[in-house]
Design a protein around this nucleic acid. Structure first.
Lengths: 335, 335
DNA sequence: GCCTGAAGCGAAAACGTTTTCAGTTTTTCC
DNA sequence: GGAAAAACTGAAAACGTTTTCGCTTCAGGC
């Protein structure tokens, strides 16, 4: 049996209350404080956090629920959240949902059972809809990356619409016309980027061609491989996140095609490999660290002011231009 | 105030004990069970896990402490651990130490305060030494990836020595002689791979040239850039993990050099970008999912049999050969 | 020297569960 | 039909803390 606060109290010749006050920074005379601290050392006492949380009614814990921790975007955000939490003296429970709405619901419920202080959540479309229908959790929550309309919730997101348009406009400027898009089908983010893509295409008088795939390398690779098999290749491709982008690049390589000659490629998420592959890949860089940090800030401020108006922070993406979208040679355009 | 088991009991017209038994699968008549389940639904009751843990004295929680969650190796292991834990009805607290021994100590202590069921831990060298000096934690612990000698601890590791040798032998077979190694300085893993590398070099009658760097992309890139600056380039390079490998590749690209003509490159961790860069990079693939799953299995078995003998599971790496270690042209060897 | 207020301390209650214990009812077995 | 065993139930204790509530002591102001 582990040593409890009573054992420490006995060892120090004081009451448990005094030990608790010493540890918690209450009013204790220097003499007793010394005795207690000595007793803590001698006994090797470790507070029981479950008991502490039960009695004090606050958990000092936040939940971070993401879709796929093997997606570098989310690991980067998670790191930032962890750092901010660490600085604020909070613990983080990291939950991975595999884009599975059932696991999401399970974890949201678990957070409730843990009586967490708050939750930072990257929801699937299914969960966003549930939130829109008014299913409010009993704890403060900040949405990240994917907020959709999600009315009554604090959120930190990229300006996805603008980013989607930005890539189109860049490609148009480089001389490409037949630009296809491949978007993730699990999140509102994919939808918004698609909307931005289509709007920009229409503005240019071009017909958009949006496709959807599950947000995984494999799904994207298979989808693009099908395009090759059918021989229906556009001039340029926009991939709406790092996994899809990776899948597209794999398909290209498997088919022995080159960027940008056979297919110009642009995508999202400035992952470390994107400037090493072939001529480098043009991407929208998301401020990942800032997303995590801002989410934590929003959560802390929400805790301080529960009734303050809802805030949605929209961050801009930065377009990093590389060789995969080099200007289209004029002679080829004549083919 | 949240609804407690007493509220449910009142709503159902039974005692709290009966509610608890209903929820916990105890012996309860069908009639009361129905009433309780109905009351649970009506009241929206959610068990308080802190209270449950405090009373029942088991937390159903394992800690996973890794050095760097943004290292894809650890994210892959973490995913596997999370899956296994989910299947076993356990929760996972994920901790990121940034290879910082102080954060490690802090988290190990936190795990104690959480009264976790067990811990899966990828320690830095500092922590391995502390363990070797006999500093045993009060919970079952399984080391992963980095165990060193760490005598009395269950562990799941790669056969690092063999893997280090394997890369050297492959490079020798391809005609390379001046083979340098860049190893991570934070973990015992780096040391063991270095040992394997040096042993294989010596067996071939060659002088080893082992270098160390912090396990980050930036540190490796700077180190290799220095080699270029000094003009002291070997024929081939072995990088002892995915981050160092990425750094080396970046330095190569920055210097405008090519694999394998200017420098043959082999490394560890079969990350998704390694077969897309240039001619593809030869790597030792670690069975990441298996490492996570085996670690969880060891932990569960340790819980079932606390006094069973210590086990160390050593897994073999698979050498994936790609263009970055293509055979060395004979004419160049004559230079 | 007395009163007031604050500081320091311990006893005991409280947090929300599970589990023990004892009592009652039901079932089973002869 | 009766006794023994099993099944069911509620009261109360327990888990390890924090916090409330008094009580005592001490300092300061008059």
């Amino acid at each position: 049996m582990a040593v409890s606060i009573k054992d420490v109290a006995r060892a120090a010749g004081v009451s448990p209350a005094t030990v608790s006050r010493t540890l918690g920074g209450g009013a204790v005379s220097a003499a007793l404080r010394d005795k207690v601290e000595d007793a803590v050392r001698r006994t090797g006492y470790r507070p029981n956090l479950s008991a502490r949380r039960l009695r004090s009614q606050h958990s000092q814990t936040v939940g971070l629920i993401v879709a796929d921790i093997s997606n570098p975007f989310f690991t980067a955000v998670a790191r930032a959240v962890e750092h901010a939490a660490y600085a604020a003296g909070l613990r983080v429970i990291l939950c991975n949902t595999d884009e599975n709405p059932e696991k999401e619901a399970m974890y949201l419920q678990l957070m409730e059972q843990e009586r967490v202080t708050g939750v930072i959540f990257a929801p699937t479309r299914a969960s966003v809809e549930r939130l829109d229908r008014g299913g409010r959790p009993p704890y403060p929550m900040v949405l990240i990356d994917r907020a959709g309309r999600a009315s009554g919730q604090d959120a930190v997101v990229l300006d996805n619409f603008a980013a989607g348009s930005m890539l189109v406009e860049h490609l148009l400027g480089q001389g490409y016309r037949r630009i296809a898009g491949l978007f993730g089908n699990a999140s509102t983010t994919g939808i918004e980027r698609r909307d931005g893509y289509e709007a920009a295409m229409r503005r240019a008088g071009l017909a958009p061609a949006a496709h959807f795939a599950a947000p995984s390398i494999e799904a994207a690779e298979q989808e693009i491989a099908r395009w090759f098999a059918r021989g229906t290749l556009p001039e340029a491709l926009i991939a709406s996140n790092g996994l899809l982008l990776m899948g597209a690049v794999r398909a290209l390589r498997a088919a022995g095609r080159r960027m940008p000659e056979d297919l110009a490629v642009a995508g999202f998420d400035n992952e470390s490999w994107t400037d090493l592959i072939g001529p480098g890949i043009t991407v929208i860089e998301q401020p990942v660290a800032q997303i995590g940090a801002e989410a934590m800030r929003l959560l802390l401020e929400r805790l301080a002011a529960p009734e303050a108006p809802v805030r949605k922070i929209v961050l801009g993406g930065r377009c990093v231009i590389r060789g995969s979208t080099a200007p289209r040679p004029v002679n080829e355009a004549a083919e």
